[in-house]
């Protein structure tokens, strides 16, 4: 598998919304490279015909009935927020609409 570069780390950090300073990119890249080399070991096992296991316990069809439960009030909902205005969460300007 390809080694992870400084540019890869910068790209992944953008995807993950973490502002890693330029000066630390190389450090992260070398550590991640070593980890990736180690975890690349998984490719050494023959897994043909094996179903990937996404849940540790085999279960199916677990549902909640459509019955209302109490909500928080606005004060509780907003209590932990860094910025609030008019009963809503205040966020810095959004550049583009999804």
């Amino acid at each position: 598998m390809a080694a992870i570069s400084r540019d890869d780390v910068a790209h992944l950090a953008r995807l993950a919304r973490i502002d890693i300073p330029e000066s630390e990119l190389d450090h992260y890249a070398s550590q991640l490279d070593a980890i990736l080399e180690a975890v690349d070991k998984v490719s050494g096992l023959d897994t043909s015909g094996v179903e990937p296991m996404s849940h540790p316990v085999k279960m199916e069809n677990v549902f909640r009935e459509d019955i209302p439960a109490p909500s928080l009030n606005a004060q509780q909902a907003l209590a932990g927020a860094p910025a609030v205005e008019d009963s809503r969460f205040r966020v810095p300007r959004i550049l583009d609409e999804e």
Binding site: L45, T47, M53
Partner: peptide
């Protein structure tokens, strides 16, 4: 190569 393969290893 990574997540998918790891889930298969997990099954093993």
């Amino acid at each position: 190569a990574y997540y998918g393969q790891a889930q298969k290893v997990r099954a093993l």
